[in-house]
Simulated assay, not measured.
Amino acid sequence: MTRSDRLLRLVALLCLAAVGVALISQYAFDMKPCAWCVLQRLILLAIAAVCGLASMGWGSVLVRRIGAALAAVLAASGIVAAWYQHSVASQMLSCAQTFADRFISASGLDAALPWLFGIYASCMDARVDLLGVEYALWGLMLFIVCAVLALAALRRAART
């Protein structure tokens, strides 16, 4: 297993752990997700899938490069989503008809998997702190870490 494979697997594990924490927060501590929270869950699962598939050991440097680059782009979209949730959406009384709400609703994921992608709160209501830091900022930091690790994996894969 190459170092880029290990980095990609670490990113996948971090993303899956973050979704797990979000689900525990939702079901054990009654922290209902807003549309932007749910969009970030989807992005995290997409990053995990891309990184997991790219690190499967098929031996292709091209597969690792594409996977790492796609993971970095997805992490950048997560950064934008988390920043928007923190700085704009959490100040709004309703996040209905925002990009996140329209995207999740149009995808049908909220109806197909409501336990994972159901939107149950407004962005203002979903504004919650964990250890004194707003959840959206935790998400922002996670996406930054994922982007850095994905770029490191891309750099490592380029050397191989």
Rank of each mutant, 00 (worst) to 15 (best):
R102P: 01
I24A: 13
A69L: 14
A72M: 07
W138I: 02
A121G: 04
Y135M: 13
G108E: 12
S122T: 15
A112N: 11
R6Y: 02
L142A: 07
G52F: 01
C15A: 15
L70V: 15
W115D: 11
G108N: 12
M56D: 04
A82T: 09
A81H: 07
V61D: 13
A100F: 12
R65Y: 00
I43S: 10
E134D: 11
L62E: 14
A49D: 00
A100K: 06
V50R: 04
V11W: 00
R41D: 10
L39C: 04
P33A: 01
V133I: 15
S90M: 07
V61P: 12
I24L: 11
S60Q: 07
V73P: 08
H86W: 12
A121K: 08
L42S: 10
L70E: 03
A152K: 03
R65W: 01
A153N: 02
M92L: 15
W58K: 09
V128Y: 08
C95H: 11
L8I: 07
M141T: 10
S4E: 14
S94Q: 01
A100S: 14
S4W: 01
Q85T: 02
G108P: 14
S94E: 08
A89H: 07
A89P: 06
C51R: 03
L13M: 03
G67S: 03
L154E: 03
V128E: 08
L39K: 08
R156N: 11
A22C: 10
R102V: 15
L16D: 05
R6D: 04
L8H: 04
A72S: 13
V19Y: 06
A106S: 15
G52I: 00
G118A: 07
A49M: 02
V88G: 05
C95G: 15
A150K: 06
L149R: 02
V80E: 09
A35Y: 01
M56L: 14
Q26C: 02
A136F: 02
A28W: 09
T160R: 13
V38A: 03
L8A: 01
A153L: 02
T160M: 12
R102G: 04
M92P: 03
I24M: 07
A35F: 06
D30M: 10
A76T: 14
L13T: 03
R64E: 06
A152H: 00
D110I: 03
C51E: 02
V88Q: 08
S25N: 15
L113S: 12
M92H: 05
C123Q: 05
A68N: 06
A126E: 11
A75G: 09
S94L: 06
M1C: 07
I47C: 13
G67Y: 04
I66K: 06
A28P: 08
L13A: 10
L151P: 05
R9N: 03
Q26F: 05
Q91P: 00
I119W: 08
Q26H: 13
L109G: 14
A18D: 09
W36T: 13
